[in-house]
Design a protein around this nucleic acid. Structure first.
Lengths: 155, 155
DNA sequence: TACTGATAATCAGCATGCTGATCAATATCA
DNA sequence: TGATATTGATCAGCATGCTGATTATCAGTA
């Protein structure tokens, strides 16, 4: 059998494992309690106020069933408001609160630091190249997962 | 805020998400029901018969508390045996069964196919380079997660 | 308008993956 | 030896992330 280090799937799992650990450590160090997934959701809602849950899911490539719990917890923390949409009574519109905005601003340096830390073994050029290759592989595989990335305008 | 596509953490999550989806699809297509994590454990135990759980965890960089459930399910499926160690009564020695060996052999082509599929957007050279960069980044960040990779001999 | 199909959100159920705790057994050292 | 620390496995609790189902609503069409 091939060595683990020759298996892209294993390497993907390890890199993601480290990325999450680094993110949580940096964020906790900064005095916050927010997961990578919660951060991505909060950030996307801040950029797209009033977005519906299903659109949000597409924006950051979450499964639609996962988003319910993530939004629940962000609402619980007082960072989000979830209203029924007036346009479509099935949908829920998401808006960031003032507390959410403050947290998002305050946490940004820690998030940036985490992104640097998870690439700390690479030169700047290698880091750029890794991101390019990941983007390319992801683009080709986008529709292979149940939660593909979707452009908001295309919906 | 930085675009998601410039965040290594986001790219790591997406790539891992696609890798798991591809793995499960290929394996199911081949008529098997095994997760990436279960496959890695089974494979490692096959190569290291009689390994203890904590050593196994280090070999494939699992958290020690995760391994209990994974091994439970593999025992349930009849692919593993878990005996108390005679050397150390706290420890459990893991051995692969004949059924486990057969499944491991039979599933290998699907696993290999999955590794190719998750890199299908890249040239061969790019795929190799992506794996090199991931290995390098992982090596530098190994100790940042609670479940670092550990060499069996070094324990 | 009534029917049909699609869609948004949610849910139950299951598998990772973590934190922090507990328990039993082992190792270390005064 | 005896006290202390460490270690292997497990557990409770929580958050992702998926499959497949359900419910309410909407959209298109006969």
């Amino acid at each position: 059998m091939r060595d683990n280090n020759e298996m892209p799937g294993h390497l993907a799992r390890r890199f993601q494992q480290i990325a999450v650990a680094v993110f949580l450590a940096e964020v906790e160090e900064a005095g916050f309690d927010l997961t990578p997934v919660q951060y991505a959701a909060l950030s996307a809602i801040s950029t797209n106020p009033g977005v519906e849950q299903v659109t949000l899911a597409g924006l950051i490539a979450y499964d639609r069933t996962t988003i319910t719990g993530v939004v629940d917890r962000l609402v619980q923390k007082g960072f989000l408001l979830r209203h029924p949409s007036s346009r479509d009574r099935r949908a829920r519109e998401l808006k960031i609160t003032e507390a959410g905005k403050r947290t998002l601003r305050a946490i940004t340096p820690a998030v940036e630091a985490a992104q640097r830390t998870m690439l700390r073994g690479l030169t700047a050029k290698e880091g750029t190249e890794l991101m390019r290759l990941l983007r390319k592989a992801i683009a080709a595989g986008n529709d292979l997962s149940r939660a593909p990335l979707r452009n908001a305008e295309l919906r």
